[in-house]
Nucleic acid binder design. Structure first.
Lengths: 234, 234
DNA sequence: GTCTATACCGCGATAGAC
DNA sequence: GTCTATCGCGGTATAGAC
Protein backbone atom coordinates (compact mmCIF):
# COMPACT_ATOMS: atom_id res chain seq x y z
CA UNK A 1 0.00 0.00 0.00
CA UNK A 2 1.51 3.30 -1.10
CA UNK A 3 1.98 6.09 1.37
CA UNK A 4 -0.81 8.59 1.46
CA UNK A 5 -0.33 11.44 -0.98
CA UNK A 6 1.59 14.14 0.81
CA UNK A 7 -0.76 17.01 0.13
CA UNK A 8 0.57 20.39 1.17
CA UNK A 9 -1.72 20.26 4.16
CA UNK A 10 -0.39 22.98 6.42
CA UNK A 11 -0.39 22.20 10.08
CA UNK A 12 -0.46 24.90 12.72
CA UNK A 13 3.28 25.39 12.79
CA UNK A 14 3.59 25.71 9.05
CA UNK A 15 0.96 28.39 8.83
CA UNK A 16 2.69 30.33 11.58
CA UNK A 17 6.03 30.37 9.80
CA UNK A 18 4.41 31.18 6.51
CA UNK A 19 2.63 34.16 7.95
CA UNK A 20 5.76 35.42 9.67
CA UNK A 21 7.62 35.25 6.36
CA UNK A 22 4.83 37.08 4.56
CA UNK A 23 4.81 39.88 7.11
CA UNK A 24 8.59 40.20 7.03
CA UNK A 25 8.68 40.16 3.23
CA UNK A 26 5.98 42.79 3.05
CA UNK A 27 8.03 45.07 5.27
CA UNK A 28 11.19 44.45 3.31
CA UNK A 29 9.54 45.07 -0.06
CA UNK A 30 8.09 48.25 1.34
CA UNK A 31 11.43 49.65 2.39
CA UNK A 32 13.50 48.74 -0.62
CA UNK A 33 11.18 47.63 -3.37
CA UNK A 34 10.86 44.15 -4.78
CA UNK A 35 13.91 43.96 -6.96
CA UNK A 36 16.34 45.64 -4.61
CA UNK A 37 15.48 43.44 -1.68
CA UNK A 38 17.16 40.09 -1.07
CA UNK A 39 15.66 36.79 -0.02
CA UNK A 40 18.52 36.17 2.38
CA UNK A 41 17.68 39.31 4.31
CA UNK A 42 14.00 38.48 4.48
CA UNK A 43 14.77 34.97 5.65
CA UNK A 44 17.13 36.22 8.33
CA UNK A 45 14.61 38.75 9.61
CA UNK A 46 11.96 36.06 9.69
CA UNK A 47 14.25 33.78 11.64
CA UNK A 48 15.02 31.05 9.14
CA UNK A 49 17.54 30.32 6.44
CA UNK A 50 17.20 31.31 2.83
CA UNK A 51 16.73 27.70 1.83
CA UNK A 52 14.07 27.31 4.48
CA UNK A 53 12.20 30.25 3.04
CA UNK A 54 12.40 28.83 -0.45
CA UNK A 55 10.83 25.65 0.80
CA UNK A 56 7.62 27.58 1.41
CA UNK A 57 7.85 29.92 -1.58
CA UNK A 58 9.77 28.29 -4.43
CA UNK A 59 10.83 31.54 -6.09
CA UNK A 60 11.10 35.19 -5.17
CA UNK A 61 8.27 36.00 -7.52
CA UNK A 62 6.07 33.43 -5.83
CA UNK A 63 6.81 35.16 -2.56
CA UNK A 64 5.79 38.55 -3.94
CA UNK A 65 2.54 37.24 -5.34
CA UNK A 66 1.82 35.44 -2.07
CA UNK A 67 2.42 38.68 -0.19
CA UNK A 68 0.03 40.56 -2.43
CA UNK A 69 -2.62 37.88 -2.11
CA UNK A 70 -2.14 37.98 1.65
CA UNK A 71 -2.64 41.75 1.68
CA UNK A 72 -5.77 41.26 -0.40
CA UNK A 73 -7.26 38.98 2.21
CA UNK A 74 -6.35 41.35 5.03
CA UNK A 75 -7.96 44.30 3.31
CA UNK A 76 -10.97 42.34 2.25
CA UNK A 77 -11.53 41.45 5.87
CA UNK A 78 -11.02 44.97 7.08
CA UNK A 79 -12.15 47.43 4.45
CA UNK A 80 -14.51 45.19 2.59
CA UNK A 81 -17.04 45.37 5.36
CA UNK A 82 -16.96 49.11 6.04
CA UNK A 83 -16.67 50.79 2.67
CA UNK A 84 -19.89 49.48 1.15
CA UNK A 85 -21.81 50.87 4.10
CA UNK A 86 -20.93 54.37 2.97
CA UNK A 87 -22.80 55.53 -0.05
CA UNK A 88 -23.00 58.84 -1.81
CA UNK A 89 -20.80 61.67 -0.61
CA UNK A 90 -20.19 60.02 2.74
CA UNK A 91 -17.63 57.91 0.94
CA UNK A 92 -15.44 61.01 1.02
CA UNK A 93 -15.62 61.06 4.79
CA UNK A 94 -14.65 57.43 4.81
CA UNK A 95 -11.65 58.11 2.59
CA UNK A 96 -10.62 61.04 4.75
CA UNK A 97 -10.69 58.70 7.70
CA UNK A 98 -8.46 56.35 5.74
CA UNK A 99 -5.96 59.14 5.14
CA UNK A 100 -5.97 59.90 8.85
CA UNK A 101 -5.13 56.28 9.52
CA UNK A 102 -2.49 56.11 6.82
CA UNK A 103 -0.64 59.11 8.18
CA UNK A 104 0.21 56.93 11.19
CA UNK A 105 1.26 54.00 9.01
CA UNK A 106 4.23 55.33 7.10
CA UNK A 107 5.52 51.87 6.28
CA UNK A 108 2.27 50.68 4.77
CA UNK A 109 1.98 53.78 2.64
CA UNK A 110 5.57 53.47 1.51
CA UNK A 111 4.94 49.87 0.56
CA UNK A 112 2.19 50.75 -1.81
CA UNK A 113 3.96 53.76 -3.21
CA UNK A 114 7.20 51.93 -3.90
CA UNK A 115 5.66 48.70 -5.15
CA UNK A 116 2.97 50.24 -7.31
CA UNK A 117 5.41 52.55 -9.05
CA UNK A 118 7.91 49.76 -9.54
CA UNK A 119 5.19 47.65 -11.06
CA UNK A 120 4.57 49.98 -14.02
CA UNK A 121 7.64 48.51 -15.70
CA UNK A 122 6.90 46.16 -18.54
CA UNK A 123 6.73 42.60 -17.34
CA UNK A 124 6.84 43.36 -13.64
CA UNK A 125 5.33 40.46 -11.70
CA UNK A 126 3.05 42.74 -9.68
CA UNK A 127 1.74 44.76 -12.59
CA UNK A 128 -1.41 42.75 -13.15
CA UNK A 129 -2.14 42.78 -9.46
CA UNK A 130 -1.96 46.57 -9.19
CA UNK A 131 -3.96 47.10 -12.34
CA UNK A 132 -6.68 44.84 -11.01
CA UNK A 133 -6.54 46.55 -7.65
CA UNK A 134 -7.06 49.99 -9.10
CA UNK A 135 -9.83 48.74 -11.29
CA UNK A 136 -11.54 47.33 -8.23
CA UNK A 137 -11.01 50.40 -6.04
CA UNK A 138 -12.18 52.82 -8.71
CA UNK A 139 -15.28 50.74 -9.25
CA UNK A 140 -16.05 50.59 -5.54
CA UNK A 141 -15.75 54.35 -5.08
CA UNK A 142 -17.65 54.97 -8.28
CA UNK A 143 -20.45 52.68 -7.11
CA UNK A 144 -20.73 54.55 -3.85
CA UNK A 145 -20.94 57.85 -5.70
CA UNK A 146 -23.42 56.48 -8.19
CA UNK A 147 -25.81 55.54 -5.45
CA UNK A 148 -25.54 59.18 -4.36
CA UNK A 149 -26.59 60.21 -7.82
CA UNK A 150 -29.47 57.78 -7.72
CA UNK A 151 -30.68 59.13 -4.41
CA UNK A 152 -30.49 62.71 -5.62
CA UNK A 153 -27.74 63.72 -3.20
CA UNK A 154 -25.27 64.18 -6.04
CA UNK A 155 -25.88 66.21 -9.19
CA UNK A 156 -27.32 64.26 -12.06
CA UNK A 157 -24.90 63.73 -14.91
CA UNK A 158 -21.86 63.37 -12.66
CA UNK A 159 -19.25 61.06 -14.15
CA UNK A 160 -18.77 58.94 -11.07
CA UNK A 161 -16.02 56.80 -12.46
CA UNK A 162 -14.00 59.84 -13.45
CA UNK A 163 -14.39 61.35 -10.01
CA UNK A 164 -13.37 58.07 -8.40
CA UNK A 165 -10.21 57.97 -10.48
CA UNK A 166 -9.42 61.53 -9.52
CA UNK A 167 -9.92 60.87 -5.82
CA UNK A 168 -7.55 57.92 -5.95
CA UNK A 169 -5.03 60.07 -7.79
CA UNK A 170 -5.14 62.74 -5.10
CA UNK A 171 -4.56 60.18 -2.38
CA UNK A 172 -1.63 58.62 -4.20
CA UNK A 173 -0.06 61.89 -5.21
CA UNK A 174 -0.29 63.34 -1.73
CA UNK A 175 1.26 60.19 -0.33
CA UNK A 176 4.28 60.55 -2.57
CA UNK A 177 4.93 64.16 -1.63
CA UNK A 178 4.28 63.39 2.01
CA UNK A 179 6.74 60.48 2.04
CA UNK A 180 9.39 62.63 0.43
CA UNK A 181 8.91 65.57 2.78
CA UNK A 182 6.64 64.83 5.74
CA UNK A 183 7.34 68.18 7.36
CA UNK A 184 6.26 70.16 4.32
CA UNK A 185 3.11 68.24 3.39
CA UNK A 186 0.16 67.96 5.76
CA UNK A 187 -1.52 65.08 4.01
CA UNK A 188 -4.64 65.01 6.16
CA UNK A 189 -5.34 68.72 5.92
CA UNK A 190 -4.71 68.71 2.20
CA UNK A 191 -7.03 65.82 1.54
CA UNK A 192 -9.68 67.34 3.78
CA UNK A 193 -9.57 70.59 1.80
CA UNK A 194 -9.80 68.68 -1.44
CA UNK A 195 -12.69 66.53 -0.23
CA UNK A 196 -14.63 69.56 0.96
CA UNK A 197 -14.27 71.31 -2.35
CA UNK A 198 -15.24 68.17 -4.21
CA UNK A 199 -18.23 67.68 -1.95
CA UNK A 200 -19.42 71.19 -2.66
CA UNK A 201 -18.96 70.72 -6.39
CA UNK A 202 -20.80 67.41 -6.57
CA UNK A 203 -23.63 68.07 -4.15
CA UNK A 204 -27.00 68.55 -5.75
CA UNK A 205 -27.95 72.18 -5.09
CA UNK A 206 -31.64 71.25 -5.08
CA UNK A 207 -31.20 69.66 -1.71
CA UNK A 208 -30.27 70.45 1.88
CA UNK A 209 -28.42 68.58 4.69
CA UNK A 210 -24.81 69.48 3.89
CA UNK A 211 -22.97 66.68 5.69
CA UNK A 212 -19.56 67.93 4.62
CA UNK A 213 -16.57 65.63 4.98
CA UNK A 214 -14.90 67.45 7.85
CA UNK A 215 -13.87 64.43 9.80
CA UNK A 216 -16.70 64.84 12.25
CA UNK A 217 -18.43 61.87 10.81
CA UNK A 218 -19.25 59.64 13.74
CA UNK A 219 -20.15 56.45 11.99
CA UNK A 220 -18.17 53.33 12.80
CA UNK A 221 -15.48 53.42 10.19
CA UNK A 222 -13.23 50.83 11.75
CA UNK A 223 -9.49 51.15 12.17
CA UNK A 224 -8.62 49.97 8.76
CA UNK A 225 -5.09 50.24 7.56
CA UNK A 226 -4.95 50.62 3.84
CA UNK A 227 -2.32 51.51 1.32
CA UNK A 228 -2.62 53.80 -1.58
CA UNK A 229 -6.32 53.47 -1.63
CA UNK A 230 -8.76 51.26 0.10
CA UNK A 231 -9.67 47.93 -1.26
CA UNK A 232 -13.27 46.99 -1.37
CA UNK A 233 -15.11 43.76 -1.36
CA UNK A 234 -16.37 42.86 -4.80
CA UNK B 1 58.59 72.77 -15.64
CA UNK B 2 55.76 70.52 -14.57
CA UNK B 3 53.13 69.49 -17.02
CA UNK B 4 50.03 71.59 -17.01
CA UNK B 5 47.47 70.37 -14.57
CA UNK B 6 45.19 68.01 -16.39
CA UNK B 7 41.93 69.65 -15.53
CA UNK B 8 38.88 67.72 -16.64
CA UNK B 9 38.51 70.13 -19.50
CA UNK B 10 36.07 68.39 -21.76
CA UNK B 11 36.71 68.71 -25.44
CA UNK B 12 33.98 68.36 -28.02
CA UNK B 13 34.21 64.60 -28.26
CA UNK B 14 34.06 64.08 -24.50
CA UNK B 15 30.96 66.16 -24.12
CA UNK B 16 29.28 64.21 -26.88
CA UNK B 17 29.94 60.85 -25.28
CA UNK B 18 28.96 62.14 -21.87
CA UNK B 19 25.65 63.38 -23.17
CA UNK B 20 24.93 60.16 -25.00
CA UNK B 21 25.57 58.22 -21.81
CA UNK B 22 23.31 60.52 -19.83
CA UNK B 23 20.47 60.14 -22.27
CA UNK B 24 20.85 56.36 -22.38
CA UNK B 25 21.05 56.11 -18.60
CA UNK B 26 17.96 58.25 -18.21
CA UNK B 27 16.03 55.92 -20.47
CA UNK B 28 17.31 52.84 -18.69
CA UNK B 29 16.53 54.19 -15.24
CA UNK B 30 13.08 55.09 -16.47
CA UNK B 31 12.27 51.60 -17.63
CA UNK B 32 13.66 49.60 -14.75
CA UNK B 33 14.42 51.98 -11.93
CA UNK B 34 17.82 52.88 -10.62
CA UNK B 35 18.63 49.82 -8.58
CA UNK B 36 17.35 47.23 -11.00
CA UNK B 37 19.25 48.62 -13.94
CA UNK B 38 22.84 47.62 -14.73
CA UNK B 39 25.77 49.75 -15.82
CA UNK B 40 26.81 47.17 -18.36
CA UNK B 41 23.53 47.50 -20.16
CA UNK B 42 23.63 51.28 -20.16
CA UNK B 43 27.19 51.21 -21.45
CA UNK B 44 26.29 48.79 -24.22
CA UNK B 45 23.31 50.86 -25.29
CA UNK B 46 25.45 53.98 -25.31
CA UNK B 47 28.04 52.23 -27.44
CA UNK B 48 30.95 51.87 -25.07
CA UNK B 49 32.22 49.42 -22.52
CA UNK B 50 31.33 49.41 -18.87
CA UNK B 51 34.83 50.49 -17.95
CA UNK B 52 34.61 53.30 -20.46
CA UNK B 53 31.43 54.52 -18.84
CA UNK B 54 32.98 54.42 -15.41
CA UNK B 55 35.79 56.59 -16.68
CA UNK B 56 33.28 59.43 -17.04
CA UNK B 57 31.11 58.62 -14.03
CA UNK B 58 33.15 56.90 -11.31
CA UNK B 59 30.22 55.16 -9.64
CA UNK B 60 26.65 54.28 -10.48
CA UNK B 61 25.43 56.80 -7.97
CA UNK B 62 27.49 59.53 -9.61
CA UNK B 63 25.82 58.64 -12.86
CA UNK B 64 22.36 58.93 -11.34
CA UNK B 65 23.08 62.32 -9.83
CA UNK B 66 24.59 63.51 -13.10
CA UNK B 67 21.47 62.38 -14.93
CA UNK B 68 19.26 64.29 -12.52
CA UNK B 69 21.37 67.42 -12.81
CA UNK B 70 21.23 67.07 -16.58
CA UNK B 71 17.43 66.83 -16.48
CA UNK B 72 17.39 69.92 -14.30
CA UNK B 73 19.23 71.92 -16.92
CA UNK B 74 16.99 70.67 -19.70
CA UNK B 75 13.84 71.60 -17.86
CA UNK B 76 15.20 74.91 -16.75
CA UNK B 77 15.84 75.73 -20.38
CA UNK B 78 12.47 74.53 -21.56
CA UNK B 79 9.90 75.07 -18.84
CA UNK B 80 11.67 77.80 -16.99
CA UNK B 81 10.89 80.30 -19.68
CA UNK B 82 7.24 79.51 -20.24
CA UNK B 83 5.76 78.82 -16.82
CA UNK B 84 6.46 82.20 -15.25
CA UNK B 85 4.62 83.90 -18.10
CA UNK B 86 1.40 82.32 -16.87
CA UNK B 87 0.04 83.84 -13.72
CA UNK B 88 -3.19 83.34 -11.84
CA UNK B 89 -5.57 80.67 -13.03
CA UNK B 90 -3.97 80.50 -16.45
CA UNK B 91 -1.33 78.35 -14.80
CA UNK B 92 -3.94 75.60 -14.87
CA UNK B 93 -4.16 75.88 -18.63
CA UNK B 94 -0.41 75.64 -18.78
CA UNK B 95 -0.44 72.50 -16.66
CA UNK B 96 -3.19 70.98 -18.77
CA UNK B 97 -1.01 71.60 -21.79
CA UNK B 98 1.79 69.80 -19.97
CA UNK B 99 -0.44 66.79 -19.37
CA UNK B 100 -1.31 66.77 -23.06
CA UNK B 101 2.37 66.67 -23.87
CA UNK B 102 3.13 64.03 -21.27
CA UNK B 103 0.51 61.67 -22.62
CA UNK B 104 2.70 61.36 -25.70
CA UNK B 105 5.84 60.83 -23.66
CA UNK B 106 5.19 57.61 -21.83
CA UNK B 107 8.86 56.98 -21.16
CA UNK B 108 9.45 60.34 -19.56
CA UNK B 109 6.43 59.97 -17.33
CA UNK B 110 7.47 56.48 -16.34
CA UNK B 111 10.91 57.77 -15.48
CA UNK B 112 9.60 60.22 -12.99
CA UNK B 113 7.04 57.84 -11.56
CA UNK B 114 9.49 55.00 -11.04
CA UNK B 115 12.40 57.08 -9.84
CA UNK B 116 10.47 59.37 -7.54
CA UNK B 117 8.73 56.48 -5.81
CA UNK B 118 11.96 54.54 -5.50
CA UNK B 119 13.58 57.57 -3.94
CA UNK B 120 11.29 57.63 -0.91
CA UNK B 121 13.38 54.86 0.61
CA UNK B 122 15.62 55.95 3.42
CA UNK B 123 19.05 56.85 2.14
CA UNK B 124 18.19 56.70 -1.55
CA UNK B 125 20.67 58.80 -3.54
CA UNK B 126 17.92 60.67 -5.39
CA UNK B 127 15.80 61.46 -2.39
CA UNK B 128 17.20 64.93 -1.78
CA UNK B 129 16.87 65.75 -5.42
CA UNK B 130 13.21 64.85 -5.59
CA UNK B 131 12.41 66.61 -2.36
CA UNK B 132 14.06 69.76 -3.65
CA UNK B 133 12.30 69.39 -6.97
CA UNK B 134 8.87 69.21 -5.40
CA UNK B 135 9.64 72.11 -3.14
CA UNK B 136 10.58 74.13 -6.18
CA UNK B 137 7.60 73.10 -8.30
CA UNK B 138 5.09 73.69 -5.52
CA UNK B 139 6.55 77.13 -4.93
CA UNK B 140 6.41 78.01 -8.61
CA UNK B 141 2.77 77.00 -8.97
CA UNK B 142 1.91 78.67 -5.68
CA UNK B 143 3.56 81.89 -6.82
CA UNK B 144 1.56 81.89 -10.01
CA UNK B 145 -1.65 81.40 -8.06
CA UNK B 146 -0.70 84.03 -5.53
CA UNK B 147 -0.35 86.64 -8.21
CA UNK B 148 -3.89 85.71 -9.19
CA UNK B 149 -4.99 86.42 -5.67
CA UNK B 150 -3.16 89.73 -5.73
CA UNK B 151 -4.84 90.74 -8.96
CA UNK B 152 -8.28 89.82 -7.66
CA UNK B 153 -8.82 87.00 -10.13
CA UNK B 154 -8.69 84.40 -7.37
CA UNK B 155 -10.68 84.50 -4.15
CA UNK B 156 -8.94 86.23 -1.28
CA UNK B 157 -7.86 83.86 1.45
CA UNK B 158 -6.98 81.03 -0.91
CA UNK B 159 -4.16 78.86 0.41
CA UNK B 160 -2.11 78.89 -2.75
CA UNK B 161 0.58 76.58 -1.51
CA UNK B 162 -1.97 73.98 -0.49
CA UNK B 163 -3.65 74.16 -3.87
CA UNK B 164 -0.30 73.87 -5.61
CA UNK B 165 0.48 70.73 -3.65
CA UNK B 166 -2.88 69.27 -4.53
CA UNK B 167 -2.48 69.99 -8.23
CA UNK B 168 0.88 68.25 -8.28
CA UNK B 169 -0.68 65.31 -6.47
CA UNK B 170 -3.43 64.99 -9.06
CA UNK B 171 -0.91 65.00 -11.88
CA UNK B 172 1.26 62.37 -10.22
CA UNK B 173 -1.60 60.16 -9.16
CA UNK B 174 -3.20 60.21 -12.59
CA UNK B 175 0.13 59.34 -14.15
CA UNK B 176 0.43 56.23 -12.00
CA UNK B 177 -3.02 54.94 -12.87
CA UNK B 178 -2.51 55.82 -16.50
CA UNK B 179 0.80 53.99 -16.71
CA UNK B 180 -0.74 50.91 -15.14
CA UNK B 181 -3.79 50.91 -17.37
CA UNK B 182 -3.62 53.35 -20.27
CA UNK B 183 -6.82 52.06 -21.80
CA UNK B 184 -8.85 52.66 -18.67
CA UNK B 185 -7.55 56.09 -17.69
CA UNK B 186 -7.92 59.11 -19.96
CA UNK B 187 -5.35 61.26 -18.24
CA UNK B 188 -5.97 64.39 -20.28
CA UNK B 189 -9.73 64.36 -19.89
CA UNK B 190 -9.48 63.64 -16.18
CA UNK B 191 -7.05 66.45 -15.55
CA UNK B 192 -9.15 68.80 -17.64
CA UNK B 193 -12.22 68.02 -15.57
CA UNK B 194 -10.29 68.50 -12.38
CA UNK B 195 -8.78 71.79 -13.55
CA UNK B 196 -12.16 73.13 -14.59
CA UNK B 197 -13.69 72.35 -11.25
CA UNK B 198 -10.72 73.85 -9.44
CA UNK B 199 -10.92 76.94 -11.61
CA UNK B 200 -14.55 77.40 -10.73
CA UNK B 201 -13.87 76.96 -7.05
CA UNK B 202 -10.98 79.38 -6.90
CA UNK B 203 -12.25 82.09 -9.21
CA UNK B 204 -13.33 85.25 -7.50
CA UNK B 205 -17.10 85.48 -8.03
CA UNK B 206 -16.92 89.28 -7.95
CA UNK B 207 -15.39 89.24 -11.38
CA UNK B 208 -16.13 88.29 -14.95
CA UNK B 209 -14.08 86.91 -17.92
CA UNK B 210 -14.20 83.18 -17.19
CA UNK B 211 -11.18 81.96 -19.15
CA UNK B 212 -11.68 78.36 -18.18
CA UNK B 213 -8.87 75.87 -18.69
CA UNK B 214 -10.46 73.95 -21.54
CA UNK B 215 -7.38 73.54 -23.62
CA UNK B 216 -8.45 76.27 -26.02
CA UNK B 217 -5.82 78.54 -24.64
CA UNK B 218 -3.92 79.83 -27.63
CA UNK B 219 -0.90 81.32 -25.94
CA UNK B 220 2.50 80.04 -26.93
CA UNK B 221 3.15 77.38 -24.36
CA UNK B 222 6.04 75.70 -26.06
CA UNK B 223 6.47 71.99 -26.55
CA UNK B 224 7.93 71.28 -23.22
CA UNK B 225 8.35 67.73 -22.11
CA UNK B 226 8.14 67.39 -18.40
CA UNK B 227 7.86 64.59 -15.95
CA UNK B 228 5.64 64.31 -13.00
CA UNK B 229 5.25 67.99 -12.75
CA UNK B 230 6.85 70.91 -14.45
CA UNK B 231 10.00 72.37 -13.17
CA UNK B 232 10.25 76.10 -12.99
CA UNK B 233 13.02 78.56 -13.08
CA UNK B 234 13.80 79.96 -9.65
C1' DG C 1 39.98 58.05 -23.36
C1' DT C 2 38.80 53.51 -24.20
C1' DC C 3 39.62 48.96 -24.01
C1' DT C 4 40.17 43.76 -22.01
C1' DA C 5 40.57 41.23 -18.09
C1' DT C 6 39.46 40.33 -13.67
C1' DA C 7 38.66 40.82 -8.67
C1' DC C 8 35.13 40.46 -5.58
C1' DC C 9 30.69 40.17 -3.84
C1' DG C 10 25.83 39.10 -3.33
C1' DC C 11 22.13 37.35 -5.64
C1' DG C 12 18.49 33.45 -6.58
C1' DA C 13 18.16 28.80 -6.72
C1' DT C 14 19.46 23.73 -6.04
C1' DA C 15 21.27 19.35 -3.76
C1' DG C 16 21.30 16.49 -0.23
C1' DA C 17 22.00 15.47 4.85
C1' DC C 18 19.32 15.38 8.98
C1' DG D 1 10.47 21.09 7.29
C1' DT D 2 14.81 23.03 8.00
C1' DC D 3 19.41 23.07 7.61
C1' DT D 4 24.52 23.60 5.37
C1' DA D 5 26.95 23.76 1.32
C1' DT D 6 27.41 25.08 -3.14
C1' DC D 7 26.52 26.26 -7.95
C1' DG D 8 26.23 29.73 -11.51
C1' DC D 9 25.21 34.14 -12.68
C1' DG D 10 25.38 39.01 -12.93
C1' DG D 11 26.41 43.04 -10.37
C1' DT D 12 29.88 47.10 -9.36
C1' DA D 13 34.24 48.47 -9.44
C1' DT D 14 39.43 48.21 -10.38
C1' DA D 15 44.01 47.31 -12.83
C1' DG D 16 46.67 47.97 -16.42
C1' DA D 17 47.61 47.66 -21.57
C1' DC D 18 47.05 50.47 -25.64
Amino acid sequence: MPAAIHESRPNRRGVEVRERVLRTAWEAFSREGFRACSLARIAADAGLSQAGLLHHFPTKEDLLLAVLRWRDELELDQVGRTLPTHTGLSVLSRLLRLVEINVELTDVVRSFTVLSAESVSEGHPARDWFRARYTRVRAAVADALQSGVDSGEIRAGTDCHAVATEVCAVMDGLQLQWLLDPGAVDMVALFRDYARRLDAALRNPAREAPDTPDGQDTRDTGDTPGGTAPSAAP
